[in-house]
């Protein structure tokens, strides 16, 4: 016996189960990053001195990274839209771009981190760097998780397009919602650490 509303929407809520599930998950993620941003505010307001982010961190690189992630969000939507239009080839292309852009983000982040370490700037140096490494590190973990899931749908998981296309489209929508959230977190992280 199948569980109802895994694919089709429940009429009175207008949602299928997975979509509700991911929204609830994202609500919890908001609280996780919300807790960390609150910690940032608490530490900064309580600190005797707090460095200006742009003095320590590399703003041009982070701007590039912001472009990468925003573009990857756009390609994510395009891949879902292509699937809705029954264009499987374009879907794969756009999803491939999404992964490439996500890797681009990681590569830039890698150079940023190593540059800090070369200058002997570690999480333990001060609380600004501590919370910077903790929050961006956690965000990087979210990016890595996203890459794994997107890769799954790009290659091994795409057989479902033949067997259960409606469900497959739903899955892409769900991973898209998650990916936009990861993007959104970065859009908060960027000004908070690099610009303010």
């Amino acid at each position: 016996m199948d569980i109802p509303f895994t694919v089709k929407e429940r009429p009175d809520t207008g949602l299928y189960n997975g979509k509700l599930g991911i929204w609830l998950f994202l609500a919890s993620e908001v609280m996780l990053f919300g807790g960390l941003f609150s910690a940032y505010v608490f530490l900064r307001t309580g600190a005797e001195s707090w460095p200006v982010g742009s003095d320590i961190l590399n703003v041009p690189m982070a701007t590039l990274n912001t472009m990468f992630l925003i573009t990857s969000s756009v390609t994510m939507v395009m891949s879902w839209a292509s699937l809705k239009l029954n264009d499987f080839g374009k879907f794969k292309m756009y999803l491939g771009f999404t992964i490439l852009l996500a890797f681009g983000f990681l590569v830039v982040k890698y150079f940023e981190y190593t540059a800090k370490f070369e200058h002997h700037l570690y999480p333990s140096t001060n609380n600004f760097l501590g919370i910077y490494f903790t929050m961006t590190g956690l965000h990087v973990l979210h990016v890595v998780g996203g890459i794994i899931v997107i890769f799954y749908f790009l290659v091994p998981g795409n057989k479902m397009w033949q067997s259960d296309p409606d469900r497959f489209v739903n899955r892409i929508e769900i991973v898209g919602l998650y990916w936009h959230f990861v993007d959104l977190v970065w859009i908060f992280l960027f000004p908070v650490f690099y610009l303010l």
Binding site: S28, M31, L32, G35, S38, A39, Y122, S124, N127, G130
Partner: peptide
Amino acid sequence: LLLAFPPLEAASVLQLMDRLAGTSF
């Protein structure tokens, strides 16, 4: 549980950083 636990997760991460990476949160 959905909304209250994540801040403790955040706190646990911060404390792990304090204990393992030498931060001073």
